[in-house]
Design a protein around this nucleic acid. Structure first.
Lengths: 219, 219
DNA sequence: AGATAGTGTGTGAACTTTACACCATCCATT
DNA sequence: AATGGATGGTGTAAAGTTCACACACTATCT
């Protein structure tokens, strides 16, 4: 089967930057390419948009196919279309990003991805195509989003916390996402002012230190 | 001549929202389509990206071909790709926006555009495709950009002013771009704090009122 | 001389952001 | 029982930003 057009058409892909936190550090989900170009190098997951699906839908599908990650709200980052960004043919990609809780994710390798793995954002491998650029843009956007307005992206930060969490745990999560340390007192004021925290009247125990109050959050 | 691919490819276009100020109101540059679909309706200028050109370059080219407008820095808004946004075939568009001084622009009609005209943003005709959505997004972005940070977009606001301008003239321009009235004293504080105004030690004359001081701006 | 019409100017209140230090409590050790 | 270690928990002041607001000035026209 082949498809013929009167004029040349580029291929269009969606690429998705999936951020998460594991072991207290910011991670990004990469796949190892099984096929050329950039065979064996790492890349952000993505693939070709189908003719009858919306961009965000296609991005979600590719993400699930390649990594097993599903059900996350994707935010569009923009289109990347340098003529030589793909050596095969002209490929324009629409980049998306999301923040997910990695421990609920079952990573699965699929069709054109050998392996999906979390990488520390500070220790990235060489990336295929212009994915380093896309990822850098996504990282900047993430830091912006998380502590500014109360958006979906900011909400998803709480997914890294257990149902019952301490404020110190919450602070650690937001610091990781923002990429810089936050002041403890100011953070507590901020989180109390911007989110609906429920004081569970419970305390942690077992630590070799003063117990911490537990909270949950209502959206 | 035809082009054949193993998998279906969408067409990719660039569409450009060009804003300007004429007669004190915010205008947008639209073209009347000569061909189906949406023959005779108005649309934001744009067209197919060539295989060897960058997205922004293609956008600039289409803009010039269809309207005669050139040499403006385009800012990417994002990709729009609902599967049915074009009835012919799958077309994904990458939207751009810019702010230009309309009086320097010579409008020219070309290949697939009958006519390029400035429309008042408050009196838009029915638009082809999903251009109403794109334009609304662009309008919101414009208002954001202009008075927040000192960006290229904000700089270009000064193009609507003569070399020597009064602060009242400047205020009118920024009010038009932002879409809401600004406080006179606060505006003067803002412009003095954020831009390098040169007091020309000249005054307007001829008005039936107190003369105004003239300024120019250095970037 | 007086009316007209746009020009030009400062202050205070409310709010947001940032910086900063000390005591409290549990556990483990001695 | 006392001590030290480790983390939890709390308030205030200064600086900066945003916003609202009112009245006198002056060239021109009549």
């Amino acid at each position: 089967m082949s498809y013929t057009y009167e004029y040349p058409h580029p291929a269009v892909t969606a690429d998705i930057c999936i951020f998460s936190i594991r072991e207290g550090t910011l991670k990004v989900l990469l796949i190892q390419r099984l096929i050329d170009p950039f065979k064996d190098s790492w890349a952000i997951p993505g693939g070709f948009i189908k003719m009858d699906e919306d961009l965000a839908v296609g991005a979600a599908r590719e993400l699930e196919e390649e990594t097993g990650v599903s059900g996350v709200p994707l935010e569009q980052l923009g289109a990347y279309g340098a003529p030589d960004r793909d050596p095969r043919e002209r490929v324009i990609t629409v980049a998306f990003m999301a923040l997910v809780p990695s421990d609920q994710m079952v990573l699965a390798a699929a069709t054109d991805a050998a392996d999906a793995q979390w990488f520390d954002m500070d220790e990235l491998p060489a990336l295929a195509f212009d994915h380093a650029t896309i990822l850098a843009d996504a990282r900047a956007r993430l830091a912006d989003k998380v502590t500014n307005r109360v958006t979906e992206t900011a909400k998803s930060a709480f997914q890294f916390l257990p149902q019952k969490f301490t404020l110190a745990q919450a602070q650690a999560v937001f610091e990781t996402l923002k990429g810089e340390p936050l002041d403890k007192r100011n953070f507590r004021k901020w989180i109390a002012a911007n989110w609906d925290l429920v004081d569970l009247k419970e305390k942690t125990s077992g630590g070799r230190h003063r117990p911490a109050a537990l909270y949950s959050v209502d959206f």
